[in-house]
Every structure is written in C-alpha cells, then in structure tokens.
Design a protein around this nucleic acid. Structure first.
Lengths: 166, 166
DNA sequence: CTCCTTAATGTTATATGATAACGATACCGC
DNA sequence: GCGGTATCGTTATCATATAACATTAAGGAG
C-alpha cells in the first residue's frame, strides 16, 4: 500500500516532485500563519508525507511511515493531524478510498472534485466551476441547501488510457 | 443507528411506505428474473430492510436486524448480499457514510447522485443528466475515461431547511 | 430421478479504518 | 514565572470489511 515517492515521481511525465512538495509546505505555512493556526511538527510531517506519496494515502500507511522514523505513534496521532489538515483545507479525503490527498487548488468558490485513475492510482483535483454551477442549479430547484460535496470520478487518466491502447 | 421504519415514514410528508417497499421488491424480482440472477431469501430480505429503513443503512445495522429475526448471521452474510445487490444495481453505496440505500431510478445513461440531508438523514437520489454531461465534458477535455462516479451532496433538504427557518 | 457441478451460505478468524477517554506536556498571553 | 488552553501520548475499544475454508442447496446433464 505504501508507495515510495521515487517510484511515483518516475512513473509518469517528469515533474519536479521535491519542488512540488516544498511549494505545498510553503503554502501551508503561509496559510497557517495568516489564520493563526499552528502547523506543528507532526502536522507538518503528515502533510509532507501525503504530498510525497503523491497519491491518495491511507491513514495507517502514514502511521507506518511516521513510526518508521519516530518509533512512537498511535492511530490518534495521525488522525488528529489529518483532522487538523482537513479543517484547514490543506488536504481532502477521498471517500471512496478512505484515503487522503493534498489540496492542490484554491477553493474560494468551488468544491473539491477528483478524477481518479484506477491504473496509476492518482487522483487529479480539477477546478471546474461548471460542475458546481450545475449542482447549484439542481439544488436550487429541489430547495436543497448545499453544504459540502463529494465528487469522485473513477476511470482511466489520459496517460494510462494511451498506454493501454498501444 | 437503526431507525424503525415507522418513525421515518411519519417524519415527513406521508407516503405509502409499504407500497414503496413492495414496489422496489417487485422491480427487483423482475430485474433478476430477466437477467437470470438469483434473488435469494437473504438477498431479498437485505434489500427489503434497506428499503424499510428508508435512509442510508449501515452493514452492521442490517446484520443486527437480520440476527434479531434469524439468530445466525455473520458479517459475510450481509456483505455478500450487499455485494450482490450492488452488482445488480439494486442498491448504491453512500461512500461518505459507509452506508447503503435502495436504487430509486433508472440508470440507463446516468450515474447515481445523491442529495443527503444532515438533519433528517435522508438521501434523495436525483436523476439529472446535466451533471453527467458536464462531467463528461470535463473528462473529455482532460482525456480522462470515465468509469464510475461518486456524487454526494450534503446539506439541508427543503423540508428541514424550512423547519429550521421557522 | 439422481448424479454432478457450481453457486450460495455458514463459520471462524482477522485485517483495516477510526475514535473515546484520560493523563502528560508544551505553548502563549499575561 | 504563572495559569489556562491546545496539543500530544497512551491504552483500549469500536466500526467497517474481507480471507479462507467447510457445508449446503440449486439446477442442468444424463
């Protein structure tokens, strides 16, 4: 279940994975400072591991990774960090997988949505406001007051679809 | 967690709940006969209980209900029935709640979607193809091949929103 | 009808995901 | 430095789901 970051970084088109992790942490630091939240060592490390895994990551995999480096840590250690990060909007939960992934977009007006590839396992967060608009319309018609959305689309990403065809 | 059917039936606008359950079972019988699937006693009973609960229902609640009437039943008994019903398209899983609900619509061209009320707990399955269309467009642009969607919108249903305002 | 194969169920054990409860510690404003 | 609150450690337990294998039942071939 645990996927070393190096494998992941190599498997598709190259991207500067270290920079991508560093960026995410910088953004998290800024956001927490701005809002008076405390990004403690554990919370920061959990966030870093989630970004490093680069795929939806399970709580117990994080726990194992933490324990590999620190030795002590029980489930609440990880779940509390995850709760904090979720509340801060720094990560999202992929409900269909009971897994967590770093937030890659700005959610001022739209809700998280993912395209999840069943082959490479990656979850791409997409930013379409169209989907939110349509849902808002449907809700309006039904008199339903929207609070939160779970939108997870499973299938094949472009790269994996191409690989399968050839 | 287990909610007696009578409470549920009374809580909002009246509907003939017995008939609604009976209809669902009739449809299930027909569909299984047509497709050569075996809607065995357990499977049928699990489906019936799900409809009777009239809300997303947890596997272990179903297990308790089954055991109350038959005494013997372990988790696999229920999970196997649920798997069958899911495969047959007779129920859906609400991923954000680890719960199951009867399928109320025809899915020839569109995928399941739910409006879930945080107050009364009901999950209304909606049939908009607009949402599917927009997702299909987004996927097209991204080169993503859609296989399955999880769309769960949490909030307040019209009735509960009205009740809160007054 | 009976044998045979396969699908379905029973049963035990265990894996996986998440939280309750409470004590100890660290941070931060005063 | 002091005191209150947030965070973390620790233990136990609850909740969700499946593996593995034994047993039984259903339905077709002969």
């Amino acid at each position: 279940m645990v996927q070393p970051a190096t494998n992941v970084a190599l498997s598709h088109s190259a991207h500067d994975h270290d920079a991508c992790i560093a960026d995410a942490l910088t953004r998290a630091d800024a956001l927490c400072r701005q809002r008076g939240l405390r990004l403690t060592a554990i919370r920061r490390r959990v966030l870093e591991l989630i970004w490093a895994n680069h795929q939806p990551t399970k709580a117990y995999d994080l726990l194992a990774q933490i324990n590999a480096e620190r030795g002590n840590a029980a489930p609440p250690t990880v779940y509390r960090a995850l709760d904090f990060l979720l509340d801060a909007g720094l990560i999202h939960k992929i409900e269909s997988q009971n897994a967590f992934i770093g937030c890659a977009v700005d959610h001022d007006r739209n809700q998280p949505k993912f395209f999840i590839c069943r082959t490479c396992g990656r979850a791409a967060e997409i930013q379409s406001s169209q989907i939110d608009d349509v849902i808002a319309n449907e809700a309006e018609e039904a008199g339903f007051v929207v609070d939160h959305q779970t939108i997870e689309v499973d299938g094949l990403c472009a790269a994996c679809a191409a690989a399968l065809k050839s």
